[in-house]
Design a protein around this nucleic acid. Structure first.
Length: 402
DNA sequence: CGAGATTCATGTGAAGTATACCTTTAGGCTTAA
DNA sequence: AAGCCTAAAGGTATACTTCACATGAATCTCGTA
């Protein structure tokens, strides 16, 4: 107590560049969605039958991250809800769920549990047969006449993690509903995902298909400009900043979300510095910071055993001056770390799976190589930039009591 | 010299185990009439 | 007698282990030129 903080608060109040920061936040849904009119109209016309209580075709949306898929579907969702008749003989319910949230919706069971929670019910975190969670979901759906539009974002992730029988089960639910109907909207940023699907599921899910092309730099500039006008004080965005930001994001497959994050963080950095207008250098800093935070968040939130494996990989990569390391060495190093950390040692089998998960998270690259008589193993390369590795190591050491 | 067999170190799938947690059920206890 | 609590029984998901078999190219073997 007694630390004088008012100068910090005052400063940030005075120097605030932001008028309304929320429009730059990722969960913000603007009133208009520029450059996505055709997609929105198409979605709307596909989903329109729902207003009459008829089940619309299942819909599949494809596009890279930050191309406005989620935004568009939310927009249509809100409009639909606005237009639904008050006295309708049925209830229109639109539920959105992102399948990629770790520990929330990354198993079949948890996705269903989450859906039920969103509908106002509750299920225990574990202990129930998945089958009975299905029937509970079914019951809730069928309790009164209802038209449910279920939006599953990052659906490819769910299928990869669970298998496509999950989608099959969901689609099958329709035939078991008596009063209600269920319409599925799948969103994915991996188009090849459709190809490895059970043909029945595939044809059923993609009754309608829609592709979201990436924004180009000009469109991004538009979007950014529009939001920045609202978000920032007038004149606080430096020359060429918007354009640079748009260009950066356009390079990253037209990811608008990234562009918005970028400029928001640039604004925050600038503000912290006490500057009164955002400059190009702030953008660069923001770019670095975003990358760093993303990785470090993942590192931080990993369970203990995962952290140990990751630390083993990092140590080993530093120890050997070469780029890549192999499974066997990692396991050895991991064992040593476990002893130091006084934690249990997992089997090589499990560690192998953990390494695979890191691969999926994008922290490492791995591929199976055969060294002839030398055996067969994974060749693993750390993809965390060097300057971040140091920070990651700190975090790991801290949380592992090493 | 070259085709085919061998080999190594681990990948990978299936099945099993431990743990934590859930529902159901039956018995025992309390309570109110 | 009805209602409530508790503990045991029976069940599941998840993280992990165990077991067995699959891989794929460097290396070895051996017949042949």
């Amino acid at each position: 107590m007694g630390v004088e903080l008012s100068h910090i608060f005052n400063q940030s109040k005075q120097g605030s560049l932001f008028v309304n920061k929320s429009v730059l936040q990722t969960n913000y849904t603007p009133d208009t969605v520029p450059h996505r009119n055709t997609q929105i109209e198409q979605i709307a016309s596909i989903l329109a039958p729902s207003l009459q209580g008829n089940k619309p075709s299942n819909l599949f949306l494809y596009g890279k991250t930050g191309t406005g898929k989620t935004l568009s579907i939310h927009y249509v969702k809100n409009e639909l809800l606005k237009h639904v008749a008050k006295d309708a003989s049925f209830q229109l319910k639109i539920t959105y769920l992102n399948c990629k949230l770790r520990k929330v919706s990354d198993t079949e069971y948890r996705i269903l549990a989450e859906l039920i929670k969103k509908m106002g019910g509750s299920v225990p975190a574990t202990g129930l047969p998945t089958e009975s969670v299905y029937s509970r979901f079914l019951e809730m759906l069928d309790a009164k006449p209802m038209l449910m539009i279920l939006i599953l974002d990052e659906i490819d992730y769910a299928v990869q993690k669970i298998s496509d029988s999950f989608l099959y089960n969901i689609l099958r639910l329709n035939s078991e509903l008596t009063q209600s109907q269920l319409c599925l909207v799948g969103i994915s940023n991996d188009l090849t995902f459709l190809d490895n699907l059970d043909p029945r599921v595939k044809s059923s899910l993609s009754e309608e298909e829609l592709v979201f092309p990436p924004y180009n730099a000009l469109q991004l500039k538009d979007i950014l400009g529009e939001r920045a006008d609202v978000a920032f004080k007038q004149g606080s965005v430096g020359e060429g900043v918007i354009a640079k930001c748009a260009a950066l994001a356009a390079r990253e497959h037209g990811d608008a979300r990234r562009a918005l994050d970028l400029i928001r963080i640039a604004g925050e950095l600038c503000e912290r510095e006490g500057g009164d207008s955002i400059l190009l250098k702030h953008l660069d800093h923001a770019n670095e910071k975003m990358e760093r935070d993303k990785i470090l968040d993942v590192v931080r939130s990993e369970p203990q055993q995962f952290q140990l494996v990751l630390l083993a990989i990092i140590h080993l990569t530093e120890l050997k001056k070469q780029e890549s390391v192999f499974t066997g060495d990692i396991f050895q190093m991991y064992q040593e770390l476990c002893v130091k950390n006084k934690s249990d040692v997992l089997t090589p089998r499990r560690v192998s799976d953990i390494i695979m998960e890191f691969d999926m998270l994008g922290l490492i690259n791995s591929r199976v190589v055969s060294k002839g008589r030398g055996g067969r193993m994974r060749e693993i390369t750390l993809v965390i930039p060097l300057n971040i590795v140091e920070k990651a190591k700190e975090i790991l050491h801290e949380s592992l009591l090493l």
